[in-house]
Amino acid sequence: MTRPLPSYPSTRPGSAREAAGEPAPITPHHVAHRGGAENPSVAALRERFGAAIVRAHVMWGETTVIVAADAIHDVIAFLRDEPAHAYNYLVDVTAVEYRDAEQPMELVWHLRSLPWQRFLRLKVEIPKGEPLVAPSITDLYASADWLERECFDMFGVTFTGHPDLRRILMWDTYREGHPLRKDFPLRGRFSRSEQLTQALSIDTVGRYSMTELTIAEAFDDLPADMRERLAERRAAELARSMRTLDAGDDA
């Protein structure tokens, strides 16, 4: 069993860029706040999608494109599949909510093109009060799975088409809301004593087992009496957290 030691390749991710004769990237010094060279993909996006590209700007050397909500999936698929852009690497999916109540909520996709060594930020603006819905891009990037789940968990954004959209950092029966929303208080919605009471009285079977057993399709194989017992505990847990939620609202 022998294996060659790791090699140092002459072809790097930026091979397309090198082939096109563009210089290798260097550390940016003296970046301007506004303005500067726009990402070349923006012109192609404008040509291809027209009015669906709401606007684009360059800030601190990074290009941001604001896209209409219904076109975002097509835009990302175009950017990924077109060889002249090849944004094959999804860096991040997240959201931004401003303190200013007038400003719309923003959903943010960070894309990177490994062959062209380019970075692009896509945004969809959702006015306050409208439902937070966006198409899922899990069919394009496998990495979108957990990133979208986190965005759903923290902001309550529903990604339509996501195969398994459930909470990821908070637990399934968490009822206090979505923690990174600006209307969510820093200490949570419930009082410290209520949070402590909840933490001490967690019925771990009722809270966790059902989900996992359902996921692994082992639930149906359980004895009938145990299934009933689990369902009861689950229902009791949900009812209790609903009650505390109501109590928290009254307070």
């Binding site: 790097r12 990237p25 550390t27 490994l114």
Partner: peptide, 16 residues
């Protein structure tokens, strides 16, 4: 097999 390294592809701190 993908030689993506942020220090080379998006340099910072004069790594280049």
């Amino acid at each position: 097999g993908v030689a993506y390294d942020v220090r080379k592809d998006v340099p910072y701190l004069d790594y280049e």
